[in-house]
């Protein structure tokens, strides 16, 4: 009798799981919020044939921005999308910090996990040939001794071609230091300027 009941319950659970799998329900994507502090570490511009012009890092370092980023992680443990405080979404990967995927500052085999996301974009005016382009890259790691933290480097490169007038490239690099929050929805904290 007990076996029959167990069999029936097991069958029901198996069917639930199958249904969830077949219908695509039951989650599979996790949204995690991070309160991040962002500071510019460099800002350089190249305009036309002029030399590369960079801001003073000491001055840049005086300004910090506090906001929230989101990480959407898929249940494959690899796919991730980072949404910045400006609402820019950048797709990429999660991986072990063991130098197999990348070997760069912060993700040079110190252990723990790393995230690498990148987005390139380009738009062109077919009439004038003017193209604008850009690339967003974030490389971050979750330190093994503090997996609730997210530390990394975010770069934002944007430019345009000479058909737009003067060719220009602007690169801004930020340091990102974040801490995981319990609830990704920001309104709950009552923060209001």
């Amino acid at each position: 009798m007990l076996n029959r009941v167990l069999h029936r319950r097991t069958s029901a659970l198996v069917c639930s799981a199958l249904t969830a799998a077949l219908t695509g329900c039951g989650g599979g994507v996790d949204v995690i919020g991070y309160d991040v502090t962002i500071q510019q570490t460099s800002q350089c511009t190249v305009t036309g044939a002029a030399a590369r012009n960079c801001e003073d890092p000491a001055v840049l370092g005086q300004t910090s921005l506090a906001a929230r980023w989101f990480l959407e992680t898929a249940d494959d443990g690899v796919s991730v999308t980072v949404t910045t405080h400006e609402g820019r979404t950048i797709p990429g990967l999660l991986f072990d910090n063991n130098t197999n995927v990348i070997n760069t500052e912060g993700c040079a085999g110190e252990g723990g996990r790393c995230v690498f996301v990148r987005r390139r974009y380009q738009t062109s005016d077919v009439n004038t040939g003017c193209s604008t382009f850009g690339e967003l890259i974030f490389v971050g790691h979750f330190p093994p001794d503090a997996p609730q933290r997210l530390v990394g480097r975010f770069s934002d490169v944007a430019g345009n071609t000479e058909e737009c007038g003067t060719p220009t490239i602007n690169e801004v690099v930020f340091s990102v230091n974040g801490a995981k929050v319990e609830q990704p929805a920001q309104s709950l904290e009552g923060a209001r300027p």
Binding site: H7, R8, R9, S11, A12, L13, V14, C15, S16, A17, L18, T19, A20, T23, C25, G26
Partner: peptide, 23 residues
């Protein structure tokens, strides 16, 4: 191995779909 009885199948499907209600 025995074939799944009909009632647990229906219960399972119901649970599965109910869990997705609104998704």
């Amino acid at each position: 191995n025995r074939p799944l009885p009909m009632s647990p199948v229906l219960v399972g499907l119901a649970i599965g779909f109910a869990g997705c209600a609104g998704d």
